[in-house]
Amino acid sequence: MDRDLISRLAHADHPVAAPLGDESVTRLLARGLPRLDARILDLGCGGGEWLLRALELRPQARGEGVDLSAVALEHARREAERRGLADRLTVHHLDAAEFTGPPADLVLCVGSTHAFGGLLPALAAARKLLAPGGRVIVGDGYWEQEPSAEAVELLGDLADLPTTVDMVTADGWVPVYGHLSTRHELDDYEWNWSGSLAERAPDQLATATEHRDEWLRGYRHCFGFLTLVLTPVARR
Rank of each mutant, 00 (worst) to 15 (best):
M1T: 01
D2A: 00
R3L: 03
L9E: 09
A10M: 03
A12H: 07
A12S: 07
A18E: 06
P19F: 03
L20Q: 04
S24M: 00
S24P: 01
V25H: 00
R27T: 12
L29N: 03
R31E: 11
P34L: 01
L36W: 06
A38Y: 06
L41C: 01
L43H: 08
G44S: 06
G46N: 05
G47Q: 12
W50N: 07
L51D: 10
R53H: 12
E56C: 05
Q60T: 14
E64R: 15
G65A: 05
L68M: 14
S69C: 07
A70E: 12
V71I: 15
V71H: 02
A72E: 14
E74Q: 13
H75W: 15
A76N: 08
R77P: 08
R77E: 15
R77L: 15
R77W: 11
R78N: 08
E79Q: 13
E79C: 05
E81K: 11
G84I: 05
A86C: 07
T90Y: 06
V91D: 12
A97T: 08
P102V: 11
P102S: 15
A104E: 12
D105L: 02
L106H: 09
V107G: 08
V107W: 13
C109N: 14
V110A: 04
V110K: 04
V110I: 15
A115E: 05
F116I: 03
L119A: 00
P121H: 07
A122H: 04
L123G: 08
L123C: 00
R127C: 06
K128I: 02
L129K: 00
L130D: 04
V136L: 00
G139E: 01
G141C: 04
Y142M: 00
E144A: 05
Q145D: 05
A149Q: 05
E150W: 03
V152D: 01
V152H: 02
G156C: 02
D157V: 01
A159T: 07
L161Q: 02
A170M: 03
D171W: 04
D171E: 07
W173G: 01
P175K: 10
Y177N: 09
H179L: 09
L180N: 09
T182I: 04
R183H: 04
R183V: 02
R183Y: 05
H184Y: 10
E185Q: 09
L186G: 06
L186M: 15
D188I: 00
Y189D: 08
W191H: 14
N192C: 09
W193S: 02
W193Y: 13
W193A: 08
L197T: 10
E199G: 04
R200L: 13
L205G: 13
A206R: 13
T207W: 02
T209N: 12
H211I: 09
H211L: 10
R212A: 15
R212W: 15
E214L: 04
R220A: 14
H221M: 06
G224A: 13
G224P: 12
L226I: 14
V229R: 10
V229C: 14
T231A: 15
A234F: 10
A234C: 12
R235V: 12
R236T: 14
